[in-house]
């Protein structure tokens, strides 16, 4: 199977607080990889290292090597902005741009990167919204504000926005944690559909969710990778006692 992301002994800090203590793993193409673990275990930090978003927080620091499609994204010749363009990201809380319409929200990545051709933009907006399973709900009001949508729709709008720049990889940082159960279900279905075309890394604190949607699961604890395996193995026959404790504790 093709490896898309190779993470090599990555360490990360917020100021003097070390949140990742040497993580190494490989992420495979067109698979959903879930990162699970208790709050504060470093799972959000980890995913933010993958598109160099960790370093935008003042005082944050990263060490180690991450290869994406064989390119070392932390090499000094690499522009972090380029990396972020190639990787889509969806955040915990839906964050559509409040001053923009639905259309412009989706087109924002392309527009602000210099795409001006109206036809290209129109096609891209429609396609991205279709992929995010939002097109039918918003096609008649593309000129309304993105804020006029419900929370679940806003999150799918953010997914469409991330897809519009045509990334290969989609990072999702607890994308359903602020949503109601029905919206959550829609996001989960969407993840399943999207993996046909994208490599998805998803952080979740909800283990059932990880079990339902992911192919691989990584369990993080206190900034260390405890176990990384096929999802089924993690949930049925974990090799590490701590994984088992965490999983059984949560499943009750």
């Amino acid at each position: 199977m093709e490896k898309v992301i190779q993470v090599n002994d990555v360490k990360a800090w917020y100021g003097s607080l070390q949140t990742l203590k040497g993580i190494s793993l490989e992420i495979f193409k067109n698979r959903v990889t879930a990162i699970i673990g208790p709050s504060g275990c470093g799972k959000s930090t980890f995913i933010r290292c993958l598109n160099r978003m960790h370093e935008v927080v003042p005082g944050a620091k990263v060490e180690g090597k991450i290869l994406i499609n064989k390119t070392d994204i932390y090499s000094s010749q690499v522009d972090p902005v380029e990396i972020r363009r190639k990787i889509g990201m969806v955040f915990q809380k839906p964050n559509p741009f409040p001053t923009m319409t639905i259309y412009n929200n989706v087109a924002s990545g392309l527009k602000l990167n210099g795409v001006k051709n109206k036809r290209v933009l129109d096609e891209s907006v429609e396609k991205s919204l279709r992929r995010a399973a939002l097109w039918d709900e918003v096609k008649d009001r593309l000129n309304h504000s993105g804020m006029s949508l419900s929370g679940g729709q806003q999150q799918r709008l953010c997914i469409a926005r991330a897809l519009a720049v045509e990334p290969d990889i989609l990072l999702m940082d607890e994308p359903a944690s602020a949503l109601d159960p029905i919206s959550t279900l829609r996001i989960e279905e969407l993840v399943q559909e999207l993996k046909e075309q994208y490599t998805i890394v998803i952080v979740t604190h909800n283990m059932q969710q990880a079990a339902r949607i992911s192919d691989y699961t990584a369990f993080l604890l206190n900034g260390e990778l405890i176990e990384y395996d096929i999802t089924e193995n993690i949930f049925t026959k974990p090799t590490d006692k701590r994984t088992e404790d965490y999983i059984t504790g949560r499943f009750g």
């Binding site: 190639k86 990201m89 741009f97 953010c158």
Partner: peptide
Amino acid sequence: REAALALGM
């Protein structure tokens, strides 16, 4: 800001 940065702006 993060959403915009993550889009590669």
